[in-house]
């Protein structure tokens, strides 16, 4: 199987043959990959020993190794094809939905529809875990739609603001 693996923004072409042998960008690699638990693995590569935790989420893979968290995705040929038809894996343009990261109370909406925002600008204040939390714009853009109002109690994942 051929895979394209993107981790922390870096792309690797990794092929795993039927006999289990593995190449990275065409070069052979010898890797001892041992399952220790539901998401815990031991990797030994050129005598270097790594404990690795791997978990799959909706948005991709998380790999924790030597105290560092790596995030990315592993695409097989079919997924690559789909991604290329959509026009790339990620883009700095297009619609961004700001969803509530946790249940809480909307204290204030600090932008209005049509307003231009800068990356990092506070757009909404959400009260949860006894703290007032500022939600910020992940990138610059224009507020297209506001789907929550001050005083409203929101569930986790509720769409709050759409930026284009």
């Amino acid at each position: 199987m051929k895979y394209v693996t993107v981790l922390n923004g870096k792309t690797y072409e990794i092929e795993i043959a039927k006999d289990g042998s593995l190449t990275v960008n065409g070069e052979p690699r010898t890797v001892d990959f041992l399952t220790l638990g539901p998401s815990l693995y031991s990797v030994i590569r050129d005598n270097a020993s790594y404990e690795v935790v791997i978990e799959e989420r909706e948005e991709g893979y998380e790999v924790l190794m030597r105290g560092k968290l790596f995030t990315g995705d592993v695409l097989d040929e079919r997924a690559q094809l789909l991604a290329s038809r959509r026009g790339g894996l990620s883009a700095d343009s297009g619609e961004i939905s700001i969803k509530s990261p946790m249940p809480g109370l909307v204290v204030a909406v600090q932008v209005s529809e049509g307003q231009e925002v800068q990356a990092g600008q506070t757009i909404l204040i959400l009260e949860s875990m006894k703290m007032q939390n500022e939600l910020k714009a992940p990138r610059a853009g224009t507020v297209q739609r506001i789907s929550a109002s001050a005083g409203q109690t929101v569930e986790q994942g509720k769409l709050l603001i759409t930026i284009v």
Binding site: A48, Y61, M65
Partner: peptide
């Protein structure tokens, strides 16, 4: 920034994981 070798190891591990799951 992570060492190149570490990042590659993490990428290999993720790929082997995904391969097994599939």
């Amino acid at each position: 920034a992570p060492e190149d070798a570490d990042l590659e190891t993490a990428a290999i591990a993720a790929t082997l994981y995904a391969h097994r799951q599939r």
